[in-house]
Amino acid sequence: MYHYRKSLAALMLLAATGAHASEKITIMVGGIEKQIYLPAKLAEQLGYLKETGLEIELLSEPAGVNAETEMLSGAAQGVIGFYDHTIDLQARGKMVESVSQFSQAPGEVILVSKAAAKDIKSPADFRGKTLGVTGLGSSTNFLTQYLAAKAGIKSSEFTTLPVGAGSTFIAAMGQGKIDAGMTTEPTVSRLVSSGGASILVDLRTAKGTEAALGGAYPAACLYMPSAWVNTHKEQVQKLVGAFAKALRYIHSHSAREITEKMPVDYYAANKQQYIDALEGSKAMFTENGLMPEGGPATVLKVLNGFDKAVQGKSINLANTYTTEFVKAAR
């Protein structure tokens, strides 16, 4: 009887482990077609996610804040969005952490419409204007508010309008619904090349980011609830390993070679424009997913500049990210 019970217990443990390992993992991406989140789709296109043996689904939301909501509701196990959400959420009593840091610069740009260019020469001119962001509570909203506050403009002195990215952002600017707005590639190149907008603040490079924000600003990453990470370390390790391979691919291949691996509809009918945009900004990606030194402190400083949820709170930055899985992947 003892041996029967022991064998039965072993079988039950094996079954439970198998079910745990094969459960579907859903990852929400805050706009999967954006170049700032390139490592996610690239890992899928190159077969790296499939190689993990896990059932992984990448779903897209137009704004990072929407993706975050899906994760908090339990509909997704992780988000590919901006690291700053881990700090904002900790301030609100929710523990999440970046397990793979994709970039060390936001990759975002504030564009000014052709019609408003004569009135907006810097963030100090935001007073009374309508500014486009992907979503309220999104990282584009965070950064826009910070740049305004740094220039002495209160959030109550301008209007932020959620307009998404891509075609919806372009339409909002073309129709005069927004005077300026923060967006990413390939939307930036589409608007600038058409003459519909000009660049006001450029956060696509480490140099531009340091000038505007005061240091490296870790942005795109895979963040997940800390409780889920702690109980699914094997799955997290495989995910991080797949994204580390995608990041290494980015640094060892040309922008053209990378573009060839992406879905055709990502080019928006202008492949060369996509290639040029990627060539100019792919240095923002980390080489393997490791958090840039000093980056979390810069992000906390930015959020403290305007985010009432963060101001006055004791934030433990060590709990907002981990390097455990990236170092093991190396």
Rank of each mutant, 00 (worst) to 15 (best):
K94P: 00
T323F: 00
A180R: 04
Y146D: 04
G195R: 14
L143D: 00
T140R: 08
V299Y: 01
A328D: 13
G30A: 13
G53I: 04
G214W: 03
T187F: 02
K271A: 09
Q175I: 00
A216I: 03
L303Y: 05
A19P: 00
G166I: 10
A165Y: 10
L46E: 13
T140I: 13
E210P: 01
G181T: 10
N141F: 06
K245F: 10
K282V: 00
K245N: 09
A277H: 03
Q235I: 02
T231S: 15
V188A: 09
L290C: 07
K207V: 14
K41R: 14
G47I: 01
P263I: 10
A115L: 02
A318T: 14
V79F: 07
L54S: 09
K245G: 08
V302P: 02
A244N: 12
L46F: 08
K50M: 03
G81L: 10
A165Q: 12
L72Y: 04
A197D: 05
N141H: 15
T130A: 12
T26Y: 01
A283N: 11
V65L: 02
A10G: 05
A91I: 11
A21L: 15
V163Q: 04
K177C: 00
Y217K: 03
Y146L: 05
I250W: 06
Y146N: 08
I32C: 07
S167Y: 02
R204W: 02
V188D: 10
K282E: 00
D84Y: 01
T134I: 02
A124I: 09
E324K: 14
Q90N: 03
Q90C: 09
L54C: 13
I120Q: 06
A211M: 06
M284F: 07
I250N: 03
Y249S: 11
G152A: 09
A63D: 08
V299M: 07
T52A: 10
S113E: 08
S252K: 13
A297Y: 04
T144F: 12
G294K: 12
L200A: 13
K327Q: 15
T17M: 14
K6F: 05
